[in-house]
Nucleic acid binder design. Structure first.
Lengths: 155, 155
DNA sequence: TCCAATCGTAGGTTGTCACCCACTATAGGT
DNA sequence: ACCTATAGTGGGTGACAACCTACGATTGGA
């Protein structure tokens, strides 16, 4: 007989802790899937940003996704050699490099979103469709609230 | 004017991704607080397990919390020198070390839970009490579902 | 009595992540 | 023409978490 593996109720009473646990588990599931294609979360994030908002200068991409510019350069590098994005010097400002999604990149993103959705199916297996919607909406509000500089954001 | 920092809707449509983002943020907030006391999440987890379930052998603790036994030894070490738990050889099986919470440990846990609750206040600031309850309940179900070996668990 | 298995422990390895610095190329004002 | 600021890039660093190994002490059964 194995020793009981039940988690301490005291911890499970803290929403932040629960959020942290579930986040870690979900992150692992998604990254494992992406690793099968030799990709990381940032690759998916960059593709999504480009598809959703159009071409970006590298700097703007790193600002939008809150990544260090030097790290962004490496991610773009890999996506470029794989043919999923294309680099092009900005004619107006030759310091800048405009990054654009290729058709291959769009296809890849679609497939990655499919995989992520499949992960959702597993993670949220016990919830009804309505509950999944509730959870998603609540998480979205928590997320956007964290991004807002607070009610007193002016300047 | 800064470049817009809005996240890609494509990503925000994936619940697992949202879970991962919020989990990371929550984890950072909690760990930062604990770091102020020179503690880590595992310290809190161990204290909670001991308070909730009573004394454990070290191995049982590591099983319950899914930590490597050698890592658990280090955590217990720190908690012991800080006086929050006490080690004692198991008389019946002298290989085993029984770990018990001290009064100091109970007090500490109470304070740590207070801190974690304070983090909840910040993270969930935009939600009503009812919504926080909903979110917590949904997260709990997702978590416990992930732990269960699935419906087809027999063996 | 002996032997395989188990417990705690010390130490090291690996991989990841975020961050930081230095350098070149370019821009844009004065 | 000069000088400061910015864009991209390569390389490195420190923190950290998960894991693995080897070892002495102890157990329990053959």
């Amino acid at each position: 007989m194995e020793f009981p593996t039940a988690a301490p109720p005291t911890l499970l009473g803290v929403t932040s802790y629960l959020l942290s646990l579930n986040g870690k588990a979900a992150r692992e599931r998604v990254t494992t899937r992406l690793a099968g294609r030799g990709l990381r979360l940032w690759h998916m994030a960059v593709l999504a940003a480009l598809v959703d908002f159009g071409p970006h200068a590298q700097r703007d991409l790193s600002v939008r996704l809150s990544v260090d510019p030097s790290d962004m350069a490496k991610v773009i590098d890999q996506l470029t050699t794989a043919g999923h994005v294309a680099r092009a010097r900005d004619g107006a400002d030759r310091r800048r490099v405009l990054v654009t999604v290729t058709g291959s990149g769009r296809d890849l993103l679609a497939r990655l979103v499919d995989e992520a959705t499949a992960v959702d199916e597993i993670v949220l297996a016990d919830l009804t469709a309505a509950e999944r919607g509730q959870l998603h909406a609540l998480l979205l509000r928590v997320f956007t609230a964290a991004r807002a500089p607070g009610v007193a954001s002016r300047s």
